[in-house]
Design a protein around this nucleic acid. Structure first.
Lengths: 151, 151
DNA sequence: GCTTTACCTCAACTTAGGTTGAGGTTCTAT
DNA sequence: ATAGAACCTCAACCTAAGTTGAGGTAAAGC
């Protein structure tokens, strides 16, 4: 199980461009795992680097660590994930990102109309009718009553 | 200065679909302002609702309160902002959102190639070469050395 | 063998964007 | 005039995603 190909925390951190403390953190969150050597030091399989790259990529897409953990939990844990395994993950996030892009595009295209001109249409304006398909902004809906239309 | 048209915290909160505590919070952050009545209670001008709507819309775009505050600071403070004032804001955020959409689109389109197939090209993959034009993800670049290419 | 670097755990701190609650005051409706 | 709703301040708490530091152990280089 523990051989020369295994990596230390320091090596993994350096290669992934993150801090050792982040590796500890991801481990406490169940996103990655490690083995220990005789002296209780962490040793990582090489595929942890791929895993961390995927975590980082997902974060750039606006996916939370919780969701990432959930997605990663569908990877096989008895063997190193292969292309098809990663491809499945990738497809799910691709779709998610597509929805997010769509949402932001709508938001953008309504900007001039809504903020700029003062129309504030309650029925057509995505700013007031956000339906955030991804639910990742954490901001919550803005619900306004009719009085707003005059403001 | 203080007339019947002024709104209480409760009224503003209800109309904007946010909590009274958020109004207090935005005030401490300098995003909105209020006048006080004889009994030290906040009274808002009606245009605060527009301002809050804009704040909420900007948050949906992924803009931080600090940036929003900065943008709002360019609005005239001696008069109620007019269409042109809002339009200027709107244009700046429109451009920002366009960049963000572009970034996410690149990320998405490289997903299958990068996560799925294992190519991990250091030179062409946006996952490793993020250049986040907006700098709003707070995740930081993933900098990987060549060893990764084999992992 | 000794020094230095890397590692360990655990607790506390950080930023953003708020929320909650205590203890007290003001408004509004009857 | 008094009950109850709404308001006030201030401090503490919350989640996410980590970072920092203290106090101690392990491994690597000379």
């Amino acid at each position: 199980m523990l051989n020369e190909a295994d990596l230390t925390v320091g090596q993994v951190a350096k290669r992934c461009g993150i801090k050792v403390s982040s590796l500890h953190f991801y481990e406490t969150k169940g996103l990655i795992s490690s083995l220990r050597n005789q002296g209780n030091q962490r040793r990582y399989r090489r595929d942890v680097i791929r895993r961390i790259s995927v975590i980082k990529a997902a974060q750039k897409m606006g996916i939370s660590l919780q969701e990432i953990k959930h997605a990663l939990s569908h990877l096989p844990n008895n063997r190193t994930p292969n292309k098809e395994d990663w491809a499945k993950l990738s497809q799910a996030w691709h779709d998610k990102l597509t929805q997010r892009i769509h949402y932001l595009t709508e938001l953008r295209d309504s900007l001039n109309g809504c903020i700029g001109c003062g129309c504030l249409s309650m029925t057509s304006c995505p700013i007031y009718n956000p339906e955030d398909a991804l639910g990742i902004d954490g901001v919550g809906s803005v619900i306004l009553d009719k009085a707003l239309i005059q403001d």
